[in-house]
Write a protein that binds this DNA or RNA. Sequence first.
DNA 1: ATCGGTGCAAAGGGTTTGCAGGGTA
DNA 2: TACCCTGCAAACCCTTTGCACCGAT
Lengths: 127, 127
Amino acid sequence: MGKRKTKQRDAIRAAFMAAERPLTSAEAHVLVQAEIPSLGIATIYRAIKDLLEEGWLVSMSIAGTTRYELADLGHHHHFHCNQCDKTFDIEGCVEDLASLVPKAFKILKHELTFIGMCQSCNGEMTS
Amino acid sequence: MGKRKTKQRDAIRAAFMAAERPLTSAEAHVLVQAEIPSLGIATIYRAIKDLLEEGWLVSMSIAGTTRYELADLGHHHHFHCNQCDKTFDIEGCVEDLASLVPKAFKILKHELTFIGMCQSCNGEMTS
DNA sequence: ATCGGTGCAAAGGGTTTGCAGGGTA
DNA sequence: TACCCTGCAAACCCTTTGCACCGAT
């Protein structure tokens, strides 16, 4: 009844560990197919669902798409590039964010996302 | 060749003005149908598309769904309730957010969203 | 009388589910 | 061997598009 170890799920976990940034289901699929070309998108979705439930991944909604990354990265935030549509991790946070919210609202977490152009795309524009 | 004034688009604009919070396309549809029951969802989507292009609405991606609100509300942020799935506006912001981002990244804007339980739902839980 | 907007239904794109076969334990 | 996982295809849901009709100008 426990989870079984399969090469598909190993490859999916490996893709998220290697990515070092949040991945969409489609991005994960492409990365994993480099290892296992026959792997179907349904397997990606089912694995992500299980990994979310067991707390190994967390999800976020950025730029109209759900993205997933390792749950144990610690508190951080994100930068989304409109040019290449990739999302990157940003270290650090700021104080007193919670003070913005009325006390009657119960805060579970917050998400801070910067939108703009990433280092790579910005460099290409100005070169 | 300009935009025409129709009762459907008037009702759609009125719904966003009255809502005082971001609405999903489905929420807007329900609200507008109270006024014009025959109004179809495609009309909502087409009107939103035009209103975004003319800068009257802005869109955001929260909790897996695209939401829209008036563009002229000034800088503010959002609170999303996991219980009722509604998103609310939060006044204010904090300083020095941009300092978190590496200088090579070009910031266009930022989005800050608190996730938790809103006043109404929180009250129902504890009563 | 134009021609943009609307309503309906079909088409698209992304995500989920049913099912038979394959692989782990 | 038992049964979870996979791959494929169908089903779903949300959004977009085609088309004929309606209605604002």
